[in-house]
Amino acid sequence: MSPRSIRCLLISLCALSASGGAGLAADLAPPAPVPEEPTAAPMGWTYRVTPYGWLTSIKGTQTVRGRSAKIDASFIDIVEKSDSLVALMGAFEARNGPLALYNDLVWTKIGIEGSNIRSRSLAPGVTGTLGTATSLDFQMAIVEVGATYEVGRSGPLAFDVLGGARYWYQEADLSLEIAGTVDTGDLELTGGRAIARSGSVDWLDPVIGARIRYAAAPGHELFLRGDIGGFGVGSDFSWQVIGGYSFDFGTYHGIAFSGVVGYRALSVDYAQGEGRRRYEFDAIQHGPILGISARF
């Protein structure tokens, strides 16, 4: 074999060896790492605090120590004499996934003039006559506690069921004009008026209900809640409806702030005692609600 042929054979062998080594190296290379699937972060608690005002109107019957009066007062009628212009309300909700715990507090001190009150019945056991009611002043606290659970969702629409309790506390003073000479018995005389004072009255109602939430857009929610309660445990019966709209308007240090506007109606029929010891509150309170909530 000539030197030229030998040189060509060596070049071919070297090329074949190089290509085979590259293939072997590729075969022995470790496989490329497979990216891990991101794991969902566990859901935690979020909290919402909502102070707001309830511009209340009242219609119904108030009975204090057996003396009854009809009430029909608008918000404007109430603020002309009331120590507070609105019923102050604070709501709190803690949510973790479908479960939410809630608390709601209302405190009012309301005065209603006689032009919005009329006597419904004479006082039992009174010798003589009493005139029409001149004013009604009462303090009231309402505390709600309970839980909601999301039982259904379709797109932006969510449906919750709820259960809890509503505690009521009231003190009422009903002022009556005196006409002629009367044996007032348990009434307190002040000038030409007799005042029936209820003292402290409280009761607890179990409550069940439902709520619908609709996310109209990111940060915008419509809600409607209804509940019933009492069932003879505390009051004979009570019901409540709240509808409203909340909208995010800013974030500060990780806290989202929202405005809340809506309307609330709350009715209760409660009575205890007989004769001069009878106390009754059978009325509906209703009006707009306005507030700001902080969510974190």
Rank of each mutant, 00 (worst) to 15 (best):
A256M: 10
S119Q: 15
V49T: 05
I178V: 15
T127R: 12
S154A: 11
G287N: 02
A18E: 08
L204V: 10
F138K: 02
S121Y: 03
F247M: 10
Y47W: 15
S82N: 07
P51W: 01
G243Q: 09
P30T: 07
G146P: 10
G209F: 02
S175M: 08
T61D: 15
M140C: 06
S68G: 12
G44F: 08
I289L: 11
S68N: 07
V49D: 05
C8A: 13
D183W: 00
Q240K: 10
Q285S: 12
G273R: 04
E93A: 08
I117D: 02
S246N: 07
L28T: 13
L16Y: 07
Q240S: 14
D183M: 03
V79I: 15
I195F: 08
S238D: 01
L174C: 05
Y263E: 06
A94S: 09
R65N: 13
G53S: 13
T251K: 11
L290D: 06
R7T: 12
L88I: 05
T181G: 04
I78N: 09
A256L: 14
K109D: 15
P98Y: 01
A22C: 09
G291W: 01
P33Q: 12
F231M: 03
A216Y: 00
N96H: 11
W203I: 03
A91H: 11
R197C: 01
G97S: 12
S200N: 08
S2Y: 06
S135H: 03
I195G: 08
E150Y: 00
A15W: 10
S119H: 06
G164H: 04
G209Q: 02
G262H: 04
S267N: 14
D227I: 01
A26V: 05
G114S: 07
L122D: 15
A18W: 04
S2A: 12
R277A: 14
R48C: 09
A179T: 15
R197Y: 03
A41T: 11
L99A: 08
V151F: 13
V260K: 12
R225L: 04
